[in-house]
Simulated scan of single mutants.
Amino acid sequence: MGKSLDLQRRVFLKSSGAAGAVAGLAGTFAAPGEAAAATPVHCPAGDATPPALSLGRLGTLRVGEPRSFHYPDARSPCLLIRMGMPTEGGVGPNQDVVAFSQLCTHMGCPVSYESGLRLLQCPCHYTTFDPERGGAMVCGQASTDLPRIDLRHDSKTDIITATGVNGRIFGRL
Rank of each mutant, 00 (worst) to 15 (best):
A36I: 06
G140N: 05
M137V: 13
S68V: 06
K14G: 10
V41D: 02
V22T: 14
F69R: 03
G171W: 06
G164A: 10
L58W: 10
A38P: 01
A52I: 06
V138Q: 07
H70K: 10
L120R: 00
F129M: 05
T49M: 10
G140Y: 03
G108E: 01
T128S: 07
F69Q: 02
D145A: 13
S68T: 12
T161V: 15
R118T: 13
P86T: 11
S112G: 11
L173E: 14
G84C: 12
T161Q: 05
T60H: 13
L61E: 13
H125I: 04
A31P: 05
D96R: 14
C139F: 08
Q102C: 03
G164Q: 03
L53N: 04
E34C: 09
H106K: 01
P50R: 02
H125L: 12
F100T: 00
R82H: 13
D154W: 10
S155I: 12
V98M: 05
A38V: 11
M107L: 15
R168N: 07
V63Q: 14
I149D: 01
A37W: 07
F69V: 04
T39P: 01
G64S: 13
P93F: 09
Q8T: 14
G134Q: 09
C109Y: 05
A23N: 11
A26R: 09
T157C: 04
Y71P: 04
R118M: 14
V111F: 02
L13D: 01
P110G: 01
M137L: 14
S4F: 12
C139D: 07
Q121L: 06
L80E: 04
L25H: 08
K156S: 13
L13Y: 07
E65C: 11
T28K: 09
L61W: 11
L117R: 13
L5Y: 06
F170D: 00
D73P: 00
L151V: 06
G164N: 06
G89P: 02
R152Q: 14
P40T: 08
C139L: 10
V91I: 10
G24V: 07
G89R: 04
F170M: 08
S68P: 02
A38E: 00
A21Y: 05
T39M: 08
D47T: 15
Q95L: 11
I149W: 03
V63H: 07
P123V: 09
F170W: 05
G27F: 12
Q8K: 13
P93T: 14
L151Y: 08
V63L: 07
K14F: 11
G134L: 07
R9L: 15
K156F: 09
C122Y: 01
P110A: 08
A99M: 05
R133N: 14
P93G: 11
L146N: 04
E132S: 15
M1R: 07
L13N: 04
G134E: 09
P110E: 12
C78Y: 01
Q141I: 00
S76N: 09
F100K: 01
A30E: 13
G24S: 13
T39I: 09
G90S: 11
A26V: 10
R10C: 00
G167M: 04
S4K: 15
F69K: 03
A30D: 15
S76P: 00
M137K: 14
G167W: 00
C109A: 11
P40K: 11
E132N: 12
R57N: 15
D96I: 15
L13R: 06
R82I: 09
L61D: 12
C78G: 03
I169Y: 00
